[in-house]
Simulated assay, not measured.
Amino acid sequence: MLTIPGIGGSGPTHWQTLWEKEYGFTCVQQREWDTPDSDEWVETINNYIQKLDPANLIVVAHSAACVAFIHWVKKYNVVIKGALLVAPADADAPTFPPGTSGFAPVPLNKLPFPSIVVTSSNDHFVTLERARQFADVWGSQFVNIGEAGHINVASEYGEWQQGLEILNDLDCI
């Protein structure tokens, strides 16, 4: 498992960090967390993935990292085992964090491996309709977990047991 945190990183009580500690997942460490450049993030993601066996790799991305990961897929077209894309931020929307570069437009290409998009009905960074569009064009299973904000610490998501269950579903596809 390879986790890819979004802007700002995950922090010590974020579900990604807790999963990394509990289950030994590897976390992508970006050089710049607060004002990222998509091209740099994509290259960093690629550096991590090159060291792993793609056939057995599941990526767990959150927020803007979902977009960077989709850019990585478009650029490198490497087939991995699967991806869990949680709260994919809409880089084309005015709510996307300022100070970033290269994330827009969000690639709308079908992924060459199984994936699940998890979203909530009240995420400030992506509308439910846009998240559904992402899932449709990426060929992902779509999971709406209800009013869960951005599915992060601010939304009071710590360990996030439901996310582990969804991840387990992806591992069984």
Results as ranks from 00 to 15, higher is better:
G163D: 01
L167I: 02
S120P: 00
Y76C: 04
A55Y: 12
T3F: 07
L84V: 00
P94M: 13
G9V: 02
G24W: 08
A93F: 01
H71R: 15
D90Q: 08
S155E: 06
F142M: 15
I151H: 09
Q161C: 06
A131K: 11
T13M: 14
Q29Y: 01
Q30N: 14
H71D: 14
A154P: 00
T35P: 01
L128W: 09
A148N: 11
G146T: 03
G11K: 05
N47F: 10
E20V: 00
F69E: 12
A65T: 02
W15M: 07
G9W: 04
A154T: 05
T13L: 15
Y76Q: 03
T119D: 10
A131V: 00
E43H: 06
K75E: 08
I151C: 13
L18S: 10
D39H: 11
F142Y: 12
P94N: 12
N56A: 09
F69W: 12
H150V: 01
R31I: 15
E22F: 00
K74Q: 05
S63C: 15
A87V: 02
A104D: 04
I116H: 05
A61K: 13
P12L: 01
E43C: 05
L128G: 03
T100L: 07
G146N: 02
F69P: 07
N144E: 13
L111N: 00
L108E: 15
W138T: 05
I49G: 00
I70V: 11
V78Y: 04
I173C: 06
W19C: 08
W33Y: 04
P112N: 04
V86F: 04
V117S: 14
F125L: 05
Y23Q: 04
E43D: 13
Q16V: 01
L164H: 10
A154F: 03
E159S: 14
E22L: 05
Q162A: 11
D34K: 10
I80P: 08
P88E: 03
S121N: 14
T100Q: 12
G11M: 04
V60R: 01
I173V: 10
G163R: 01
Y76T: 13
A87F: 00
E147V: 02
I173N: 08
H124K: 03
T95I: 00
H62S: 06
L108P: 01
A64D: 02
Q161Y: 13
I49N: 05
E156W: 09
L164A: 11
I173M: 06
V79Y: 03
V73K: 05
N152C: 02
D39Y: 10
A93N: 13
V106Y: 08
N46M: 06
T44G: 12
K81H: 15
I7Q: 09
P107H: 10
V118A: 02
F134G: 02
S140C: 12
A83E: 07
A65P: 07
E22P: 01
R132M: 08
H150Y: 05
L111G: 12
